[in-house]
């Protein structure tokens, strides 16, 4: 490849026409349509009538996944063929950085919801401040505490409760997932998840460090450890959800505590799973194909940025969902 100098410039590689985008569109649209109609069947449909919505969803998803596989494979092949100039590699770096920023903003929406509910909405329902003056008319016996163990609907009881239940029943949980105090720290599952995820951020850094020193063996070791920690994290979170549903009476439908708890930790867990798959793919690329060199390993670097990002989100979750 020509180097970038004062006289000549590298040619920026613009791929020939490509079928990837159209295939990805077909896959995505089938996936989304299948999901939308499947969800609608569940809520509004006749339970005795079988539909093929979820079949469309799975076919679409499989096709979409296959397309993405080919897409990444194409990009990697082009890279290995030396088509990607330093400038084009920077485009990938910028793309990944801004993609992570967009993910940050997605989580921001849910944190915004949590803060709004905890600082404003729920205290107002309990009669706090000027905005709470309608409390005695609507939600007389409701008092605010977080985690919200008793919903406004629970608090009013009687006929009003019956009327309201026509729009859905929101009854508070029996127990919450909140921090139980230092005495019970070691019986508290999120403590282990915190240790696991923070450790995995360190191990992925060590893997990166090993790669920078061309120590392939240590790179594989630490990356494997990172992926396994990710698996354990997701496993423990599934266990936590099982506990919540089976023994805590804590579900999506137990008012706004259950809502924010499951949505925030759920989206985070989904992102951990995605990050884990990304890192696993990088591991397989290195083990099976010998990809990456010490100064050229964007696929791994991007995945590790993503991994650090889910780690940072977890720290915020720990603080505002579990502890405070």
């Amino acid at each position: 490849m020509a180097s970038q100098g004062n006289t000549g410039h590298e040619v920026y590689y613009v791929p020939e026409s490509s079928k990837l985008a159209v295939c990805a569109t077909i896959g995505l649209v089938l996936t989304i349509f299948g999901a939308a109609s499947g969800i609608n069947d569940g809520t509004f449909g006749d339970p005795n009538e079988s539909t093929n919505s979820w079949f469309i969803f799975w076919v679409g998803l499989a096709f979409f996944a296959a397309t993405l596989f080919v897409w990444f494979k194409t990009a990697i092949t082009e890279h290995l063929a030396g088509k990607n100039s330093a400038q084009l590699k920077r485009s990938y770096v910028i793309g990944m950085q801004w993609f992570i920023f967009s993910e940050v903003m997605f989580f921001f929406a849910f944190f915004l919801a949590l803060f709004y509910i905890r600082w404003f909405a729920a205290p107002w329902l309990a009669g706090e401040g000027d905005a709470g003056r309608s409390n005695y008319l609507l939600w007389g016996d409701f008092s605010y505490s977080w985690p919200l163990m008793q919903t406004p609907q629970d608090a009013i009881g009687g006929v009003a409760n019956q009327v309201m239940a026509n729009n859905g029943v929101f009854s508070g949980p029996e127990r919450s997932m909140a921090f139980p105090g230092f005495g019970e720290l070691f019986k508290w599952l999120p403590f282990y998840n915190t240790v696991i995820l923070l450790t995995s951020s360190v191990t992925v850094h060590w893997a990166h460090h090993a790669l920078l020193h061309d120590d392939r063996k240590k790179f594989h070791q630490w990356l494997t450890v990172t992926v396994l920690l990710g698996v354990v994290f997701v496993g423990l979170q599934i266990l936590e959800y099982y506990e919540a549903y089976a023994h805590y009476g804590l579900t999506l439908e137990t008012g706004v505590y259950g809502t924010t708890f499951f949505m925030l930790t759920g989206f985070h867990g989904f992102h951990v799973a995605m990050g884990m798959i990304m890192l696993l793919i990088q591991l397989l690329r290195s083990v099976m194909k010998g990809h990456f060199t010490k100064d050229d390993h964007f696929g791994f670097a991007a995945s590790s940025w993503y991994w650090h990002f889910v780690d940072v989100v977890w720290i915020f979750l720990m603080l505002v969902v579990y502890i405070f």
Binding site: I117, L138, Q153, T251
Partner: peptide, 15 residues
């Protein structure tokens, strides 16, 4: 709408 959360429902503590 579909999964019983109460982001926007005061009965569950949302708004």
């Amino acid at each position: 709408i579909h999964f019983g959360t109460s982001f926007f429902s005061a009965a569950g503590g949302g708004d």
